[in-house]
Design a protein around this nucleic acid. Sequence first.
DNA 1: TCAATTACTGTACCCATGGTATGGTTTTCT
DNA 2: AGAAAACCATACCATGGGTACAGTAATTGA
Lengths: 211, 211
Amino acid sequence: MGTVIEPRLSKGEATRERILEIAEAAVLTKGFGATSIDEVIAEAGLTKSGFFYHFKDKNALAREMLRRYVATNDQLFDDIFARGRALSDDPLQAFLISLKLLAETMADLPSGHPGCLIASICYQERLFDREVRELTAQSVRDWNARFRRIFDGIATVYPPCEPVDLDDLADALSCIVDGAIIMSKTLNDPKKLEQQIMLFRGFVKLLFAPN
Amino acid sequence: MGTVIEPRLSKGEATRERILEIAEAAVLTKGFGATSIDEVIAEAGLTKSGFFYHFKDKNALAREMLRRYVATNDQLFDDIFARGRALSDDPLQAFLISLKLLAETMADLPSGHPGCLIASICYQERLFDREVRELTAQSVRDWNARFRRIFDGIATVYPPCEPVDLDDLADALSCIVDGAIIMSKTLNDPKKLEQQIMLFRGFVKLLFAPN
DNA sequence: TCAATTACTGTACCCATGGTATGGTTTTCT
DNA sequence: AGAAAACCATACCATGGGTACAGTAATTGA
């Protein structure tokens, strides 16, 4: 627990990671279009030539940033839902636990959630090539499908007390998280995200829990 | 119905409006930082001098864009919730009707919702001055307070079947709308927005409706 | 209708930044 | 030691935000 096995990075890979991390933080606060390569390399401590050695252009940077972001998020979801299932055999209970874990994870972020890269890209779509946009769409579809499977499992055991479209319900989680991140950032109140996840949890309970 | 009284605009005001409309569309698809004044004036059919006659700099443009966006949205909410109240004296029914109207309004947008300017700004905060950021925060607070008052009215008549924080519930509407707009845009599926509003409507019903 | 605003156009210019190209140099690894 | 990887230096171009200022066309109110 807590120990992550970091595959040993070559110097080049380490630099790439550093660039991606710095760029991501910049993109989430200023947008992709307004993130200058100059400031990224300044913070990363390398020259422009060094940057273009790693990424052939700005769009390549976007692609790799996105891949990294999606992979990290996938990993987080894998962990959280696996832990939920480990703590309860009941699909509903497992999901409720996982939502709680998700809320706690978000609440533990030191200065709030830094932002969703997919939302950021969505509001700057014209800046990106087809590949980047297709990657964002596919990631969202994958997450929705993941949640949908979970709700399927729940609904077979606990029929919902009101008719509900499970696809919409699955979509709702991503929507709420993305929307709450925006509200947290806009109001400078990190708690909103946690609160909205817990509110959604309450609805899921209300919808599926017997009684 | 349908007829809006347009206050007669002077030529200058008309140009300002045109600039703001073009700029807003550009900002919502490319971001503020990547929206060049050159392209805006090209589309608006005026020169750079003409632009700076109306707006002293890019931040002034952002401010006016935002004011316009907020005013339009406020007007929409005023209309929709007034119509809901006109159609039912019961606060819950009135709200459910309004949510339906909201969902329909969103569904009727020709090519989906163009995007939320506040979300766009939120993902480019560092580009804007304090005034713009304060304006976004205040707008969100106002909308949340508006919804909160409505839920207050409902809760006094219909006590919720489960304990729920009405502030969080009020926040949820903005979150869901913002999140669903992002999903709609990312997946290029305008229906998501309508579906999420109707799902939220279902939860409200489940929470407050007797039985 | 005429004068005063208002609403622009045109030109010229400054500086920062994104991005490209290319050739050379150092580091790292085997 | 030698090859590949990981850079650095320099030069260059186009674009974009922004300023300054002089002139002109269109509106508008008295």
